[in-house]
């Protein structure tokens, strides 16, 4: 309950989220998302560590439409310490359907090698309706792998889509090794929530 309250409070004051939306300078990332509302494939390029531009092809299951977003992400704030990193990102996207279909959002995370927390909120305006997505994610690494090892995270994600009723809270497993990251969550109501990412 406490976790949910903090998530709601953060989302009240912040209009979104996605894992590591900016790569290193000159790096490219391709990722795919799949959940009960949509499937998408997103490619982005980072001219610098503070900024990325990309395109996301979306298959919207809710409206049975297919479209794309021209997206950009800006690193608003980063704080590095010996054992932690904190980030706040701003995101925006414009649909190929026209200027009336766009989104804005904010995404934040804080992590150490052992702990992870992240939140996000996104407001989407479409030609037919407006909606919002919010989430909070907390995680712990059961072991600390060395550089190059398989890394594992046990996470709890709480998500709210204004088109659906209530918050969904469910476990998520995250794995990464080398340039590949895989994140899979499951909830009885929203079923699978998966995310795969490759950096190059």
């Amino acid at each position: 309950m406490g976790i949910k309250l903090v998530g709601i409070l953060l989302c009240l004051f912040a209009p979104i989220l996605a894992a590591r939306p900016i790569s290193y300078s000159g790096g490219s990332t391709i990722m795919a998302f799949s959940n009960t509302m949509q499937d998408s494939v997103y490619y982005h390029y980072s001219p610098s560590y503070r900024f990325s531009v990309g395109i996301e092809a979306v298959s919207d299951k809710y409206t049975a439409q297919e479209y794309a977003y021209w997206r950009s992400t800006y690193l608003l704030n980063r704080k590095n310490t010996q054992h932690s990193q904190r980030n706040i990102y701003l995101q925006a996207g414009i649909s190929t359907q026209g200027l009336d279909h766009h989104f804005v959002g904010v995404h934040g995370d804080w992590e150490t090698r052992r702990w992870f927390s992240g939140f996000g909120a996104k407001n989407v305006k479409t030609n037919t309706s407006d909606y919002s997505e919010k989430f909070l994610q907390l995680g712990v690494a059961p072991y600390l792998g060395e550089y190059g090892d398989l890394h594992t995270w046990l996470m709890l994600k709480s998500k709210k889509d204004s088109r659906l009723e209530g918050w969904s809270t469910y476990p998520v497993l995250k794995f990464f090794k080398g340039n590949l990251l895989l994140e899979v969550g499951y909830d009885r109501e929203i079923e699978w929530d998966s995310h795969i990412m490759y950096r190059f």
Partner: peptide, 16 residues
Amino acid sequence: VIGMVCDFCARGIEKT
């Protein structure tokens, strides 16, 4: 280096 808390995020160092 500070802020190097994640393998996935440090990949760019090796590549660069």
